[in-house]
Nucleic acid binder design. Structure first.
Lengths: 236, 236
DNA sequence: GAGTGGTCTAGACCACTTG
DNA sequence: AAGTGGTCTAGACCACTCT
């Protein structure tokens, strides 16, 4: 059958996805049980198998279905839900809340890495690293303090960048996409950072550790500590 | 051309994706610039347009490309990277670290919600909520303290569940998938929770707030506080 | 061995957007 | 008006894995 042949018969993969999602929620298909195969569903919906495939693939990616060749498609008993954190570019994060963003370079030096950084980035210890401390503000109020190490062997070009104008993160995002990395959240006391964040030494602050790699080469280690009241929000 | 016709000519969408990714990284296609359209790329790779489409759609989903009808496909200047946090089922999280998981129900009561919960869940204040406090342990060491409110109007069935055996979260995941929700991370001082987490009152703890909904109906509000040394890890 | 999902093709129409 | 991506179809072969 051809679209536009007058029968107005085409079915969208989204509508199939939605229908199947409704059935899963209503437990028309019991958790853990097989659902009909693609050929049968295509017959039911009156569409091509590829269209059903697209819909079910989407639900599998979303974590509601488990698909295996020959074994068929099952409803996951405990949906593997994922939260996606669109990685905050600090400027966008601040401005989206309606505040004016400001960035200040506090320190810039080329040093050999301390043990924590050396081990995390799997360095020998003799490498030259660019060490940058900076403060990010929202409406002139301290928002986040960043302490970052950048491996010059991996990113030589950043040595000549004027980091008073461009924050290291912005420069890196634009010039050196990473291949993979990790992010960790933890709670710490502000300690020495209290001076920049304008809070008490023993205030709890949310800290985000980020490490990124370009294949096997370490790029950067960043410790970003947010002002005490800050919350990191994710949509589910 | 047909697969298996002896010419061994089929090209996978993954290989096209990888090739295009390499070109993006190498800046063969400059950031912000148009890349060739699907028809031209299909000709170059010697495959059907649908195959190119699948590859480029994947890169767009991953945040490296921006696609618009008529306007064409552009390389994103600042890749919109996403971190995915596979939502931790506490038991799996603990056991994946090799520790033995344990769960203890501390308190269970049916109450009217305090202001914070009422406002967050958009309740009138007269609803009956199930209020549950529990402790999750790893090798008998406190790992996470949870204070949770569950809206009985939305989830009446949970009133008769033996929550000493099944944690509220496990029950909810299995019986009532949510449609959407939010998650927030913040740093707090342990305060009264120190008794359960076995730490000092002023130790900083990482707290995760979770609110979930079934369409317009509020399901639950949970405040989970992790033991002081804990880090929440995400892969990039 | 056989059933199921994964993918590719060639062609077509459609939807959106820019010029 | 026209170019580009988005999607659907019908058919085919393949890869995986369960029995």
């Amino acid at each position: 059958m051809v679209k536009g042949d007058g029968s107005d018969s085409s079915v969208s993969w989204q509508s199939i996805r939605d229908t199947m999602m409704t059935r899963i929620r209503a437990q028309d298909y019991a958790p853990g049980e097989l659902i009909p195969n693609e050929v049968d569903l295509a017959a039911e919906f009156g569409c091509a198998r590829a269209t059903v495939n697209r819909a079910l693939r989407d639900l599998a990616t979303s974590g509601f279905l488990d698909r295996r060749r020959k074994a068929g498609t099952r409803v996951r008993e405990a949906p593997r839900r994922k939260a996606t954190l669109s990685i905050p570019l600090t400027r966008a994060e601040v401005e989206s809340s309606g505040a004016r963003y400001d960035y200040r370079l506090l320190e810039r030096a080329i040093e050999t890495p301390p043990p924590l950084v050396r081990e995390t980035l799997k360095l020998s210890g003799t490498e030259r690293l660019l060490h940058v401390k900076s403060l990010h503000l929202a409406d002139d109020v301290p928002h986040m303090f960043e302490d970052r190490w950048i491996v010059l062997e991996t990113v030589p070009a950043i040595e000549t960048v004027d980091l008073a104008k461009t924050s290291p993160n912005v420069w890196l995002v634009r010039h050196l996409p990473y291949t993979h990395g990790t992010m960790e959240f933890l709670a710490e006391t502000a300690g020495a950072r209290s001076r920049h964040l304008i809070c008490a030494d023993d205030d709890p602050v949310l800290t985000m550790l980020r490490v990124t790699w370009l294949d096997a080469s370490p790029i950067t280690f960043a410790r970003q500590s947010f002002s005490p009241s800050h919350r990191m929000r994710l949509e589910l």
